[in-house]
Design a protein around this nucleic acid. Structure first.
Lengths: 97, 97
DNA sequence: CTACATTGTCTTCGAACGACGACAATCGCG
DNA sequence: CGCGATTGTCGTCGTTCGAAGACAATGTAG
């Protein structure tokens, strides 16, 4: 998932939080921040403190990586990973009752 | 490049800045921040403002992406995200000659 | 080595932070 | 639908922010 804006980040945080079945208070406890901070960051708060952002990501088992924009723009096909359709179909079947 | 701490980020910013042949004043101008802010972020300032961080990365043609840490740990496949099978199959068909 | 360029550090000041408590609004389940 | 759970918003307060200017310390090229 590509991050361009604070709102991108906030939405990603919310998505992962819900995926993990946590509420905002749970996550706040894990990250060592106040609940209102979680509310604010999920809404795209641009002036949030970087260190707290990184801590919150760690609390959600998310990791950030950085890519040189030139590389990403320069190789249209070589960065696609082979797709294992069978494994994906199997996983999807396992998810459906 | 994996980012865990504000210092990781700051060192990455400095590295890219030097790679692009910019000094701190140049980068500050591009990112719309003061030079001292660049000094501080490069040294790993944890309380820096997220929005300014993202702007600085954009000024350096760097992009951030986020990965689910569980996937990154190399689990075999049962942690795949909820998936739109039809979209994946379509994309795979488009890839096959 | 010297001179210039670059980076690092300090001060000031109005704005905003994050934590905490509390109430309002919305959501989701039975 | 009702009700409890969750999210959103507001106010307060001590702390820190970032911009701007300026000087110190370090780096680099000739």
């Amino acid at each position: 998932m590509h991050l361009r804006t604070p709102l991108d980040l906030g939405l990603a945080i919310r998505q992962q939080r819900r995926r993990l079945g946590l509420n905002q208070t749970d996550l706040a406890g894990r990250a060592g921040v106040g609940r209102q901070w979680i509310v604010a960051i999920e809404q795209g708060k641009a002036r949030a403190e970087l260190g707290l952002v990184l801590r919150t990501l760690a609390a959600l088992d998310l990791s950030l990586s950085m890519d040189d924009g030139v590389e990403a723009a320069g190789s249209p096909g070589l960065h696609l990973e082979p797709i294992d359709i069978d494994a994906i179909v199997e996983a999807a079947r396992a998810r459906r009752p």
